[in-house]
């Protein structure tokens, strides 16, 4: 069963067309990695899927709900981890989690926040302002923020960007622990990481899908070469 369905999705900013007739689907429990050069439209695609941006045209169905008709319900089921942690710098780690937990109507906020702070190894810094955190620590807290409401679908926009190896291990461990019941779409430039985590891969170039296959249907070297050509093409 498809958890995410995208049909003929278009997005324009003024005259610039960022996404051109993008269509694909991801099964429930699937993990899709999206690759592509800078400016290809990957982040815009994730922003549309996570309801932050509105599409110019096309149809998106998430968990059997149509984007634009059930946006609030969709938002309850999705989480986003991006290279921007979406955290308030002058709130403490706990206050940030409490704030987002309240927005999502999480019950037992305190317990859930404590549990996640423990998982991302930030319990000892829970009352410190995020302003005092390193990039890696803020990103670990961003992971906790995104998981606060136990989303079914996770969008990951370059989640490993700026993370130290320890934080990468924590993120990968958390992703691994929730694999199976969750659906993932990850945008990344890290070929090895994206390939190892996912069960299907996609390359976007200039707003169009130029490759979308199950991982076992494609040779890794062939995929690497296609990706290199796409990056050169946009460069």
């Amino acid at each position: 069963m498809h958890d995410i369905e995208v049909e003929n999705l278009n997005k324009s900013f003024g005259r610039r067309r960022v996404l051109k007739k993008v269509s694909f689907s991801v099964n429930k429990g699937g993990f899709l990695s999206i690759f592509g050069p800078n400016g290809a439209g990957k982040t815009t695609l994730v922003k549309i899927l996570s309801t932050i941006e509105k599409p110019s045209d096309g149809r998106v169905v998430i968990s059997q709900m149509v984007l634009g008709e059930d946006a609030t319900e969709i938002r309850k089921r999705i989480g986003l981890i991006s290279h921007n942690p979406l955290l308030y710098l002058d709130l403490s780690a706990y206050e940030n989690l409490e704030f987002y937990g309240t927005l999502y109507g999480v019950s037992g906020i305190k317990e859930r926040a404590e549990e996640l702070l423990d998982k991302v190894e930030l319990t000892h810094r829970r009352h410190d302002m995020v302003r005092t955190f390193s990039k890696g620590m803020a990103q670990r807290l961003a992971i906790a923020r995104a998981l606060m409401h136990k989303p079914d679908i996770l969008f990951l926009d370059e989640p490993h960007s700026g993370l130290d190896p320890h934080a990468v291990d924590i993120l990968d461990g958390l992703l691994e622990s929730i694999r199976g019941n969750h659906t993932f779409i990850m945008v990344t430039h890290d070929l090895e990481k994206g390939f190892s985590l996912s069960d299907s891969v996609m390359i976007i170039e200039d707003g169009k899908i130029i490759l979308h296959k199950q991982k076992d249907e494609i040779d890794k070297d062939e995929f690497r070469e296609t990706y290199r050509q796409a990056v050169r093409g946009m460069g």
């Binding site: 922003k47 319900e73 938002r75 999705i78 986003l80 927005l103 109507g105």
Partner: peptide
Amino acid sequence: DGLLLSPV
């Protein structure tokens, strides 16, 4: 984006 992402 964090506000827009939330079901508010």
